[in-house]
Each structure stands twice: as structure tokens, then as C-alpha cells.
Amino acid sequence: MIYYAIEVMAPLLLAGLGGLFAELAGVLNIALEGMMLAGAFAAIVSASLTGSIAAGMLGGLIAGTVLAYLFYFVGIRMRANIFIVGLAINLLAAGSIPFLSSAMYGTKGVLRLPRVPRMPGFFVGIETGFPLLDQIFLGHSFGVYLTVPAVLLAGLVLQRTPFGLRLRSTGKNPETLRAVGLNPDRYRRAALLISGMGAGLAGSLLALRLGVYLPNVSAGRGWIALVTIYLGYKRPFGVLIAALCFALAEGVSVAAQGVLQIPGTILLGLPYILTVLAMIAYSAMRRVAPSDD
């Protein structure tokens, strides 16, 4: 169950970390879902064309970034309403993937393409002497081992670089950047492109792990990634914790499905409910503590 949760967490976390950059730059990126979907599709297509996992991931990354640039261009440069642009990007992904899929491969359904390699497990066969730990932490797909460096890198960039300071300042008050002659749009663009990369990569992990492209393979994970940003109080490590919680809740649902004979569809709602409860508990606790007014 925990093994499964960790596997589930990886794409969620990457998308969440990417979205975190956008969020901190003051742009609510509700198009993470669409970007993940595009990433997943592009990953399978490019993996099939090249026969390489790396190329697949690169394809996903590029697809997410392209959509992010579109988001930037319309939402920031043309001063559109961020929310509607986000919805539009999601629609665009939802509409153009089946369109391209049927134009290229003649099907809108499950895309099982030749030459897509299997995602290899990493650290297989290594033993640390703690079988339980081995079971949980080893043998995951590549993406899982990307997450810890990603969290550290995000924290480093956001907190310890001039770029991160400027990006965070953009989100809090873009006027302060203008006052010192910096262009806040540059930092919004950078943040959006990073969020596109994160979401695209996350999508590619989803698809490459399965080796096929399933319609709606992201299944709301883009939205949940967005929620992890808020639940994680807009900090990289917080996003990690939130993503892990979500993944565990999903793991519990899947496990419960097998054990308790509860219909799986109902359990799909469980992570959301748990999240609401966690939010309330957190806020209520803050209220009680005399730290805030």
C-alpha cells in the first residue's frame, strides 16, 4: 500500500511543485490538469517514435511547456482573466488530444503504440538489510527518485536565489518589482513555464509507467496537485507532505476496495473528504493557538 502510494505521489508532487512556482508568482494555474494530459500523450508519442524513455519524458516536458507558454501569452501578456484562460487550456488539451490521436493513429481511445519501452524499476535487487524499507522504497520507477531532488531544488531556488526572491515578490506585490526597474511579467513567465514543465513531466510519468496512453489518464490529478499547493501552505516541503497524504488516501481507498468490498467509485471521493477535514483541523488549530489574530 505504501509502495503504491509512493508511486502515485511522484507525478502529483512534480505537478504540485511546478504549480507552486506559478502560485508564488501570483498566477493561479488551474491548467495543470490539461498540461498533465498533454504531457502524458506527448510522452507516449515521442517514446514510440524514438523508442526511448528519456525522449518520452522530454516530449512530455515540452508539451507541458508549450501549453504554459500559451497560458502566459494570453493570460499575462494579453491581460486575460487567468481563470478562464486556465479553463480554456484544459479544454484545449481535452479536445486536441483525441483529435490528434485519431488523426495520427485512427483512435480516440487507449493508445497502445509500438516501441514504447517499459519504465524500468530502479534500485532493484539492492538490499539494505531492512526488508521492510527495501520493499517500500526500492524498485520504484524513475520518477519517484526524481521527487526528493525536485523538492530540494524547488526549495533552494525559491528561498535561496535572487530569482526566487523576485518570483515570490512578484506574487505578493508586483509593484515592488516595478519600483526597482524589474519586469514582473518576466518572473510570471518563468514561473508558468516551470509549472508547465512540472505538469508535463508528471503526465509523462503517468503514461510511461503504464506504457500506454489512456484517455483522461490524469483523472483529476492536476486539480489535486493544485490543492496540495494550498494544503502545503505554499512551501515545497509542505507540498511533499500534502502529496504524500493524498497518495496515502488513495492507497487506502484502493486497499479498502479489495478488503472491505466497498465500491471503488465511492472511495474515489475519499481523498477529497480527508483533505477538507485536514484543512478544517489545521485552521481550527490555528484559531485556538494564541499565535494569530
Binding site: 501570483g26 494570453v74 491581460r79 486575460a80 487550456i89 486536441s96 506585490n173
Partner: peptide, 29 residues
């Protein structure tokens, strides 16, 4: 869907300048 998405993009780009909703939604303080 694609047509609707394209129209979404364009309509909002011009009808709505950066509104207070956009600001609120992005949590600007």
C-alpha cells in the same frame, strides 16, 4: 471542444482586463 477553447482564450483576453477576481484567485495581497 477545441473551438470552444479557442474562443475562451480570445474572449477573455480582451473583454476582461485583470480583474479583482483574478487578483483574488491568485491570492495577491
Amino acid at each position: 471542444t477545441i473551438i470552444r477553447a479557442v474562443i475562451f482564450l480570445f474572449v477573455t483576453a480582451t473583454v476582461l482586463p485583470h480583474s479583482d477576481i483574478a487578483a483574488r484567485m491568485s491570492g495577491r495581497v
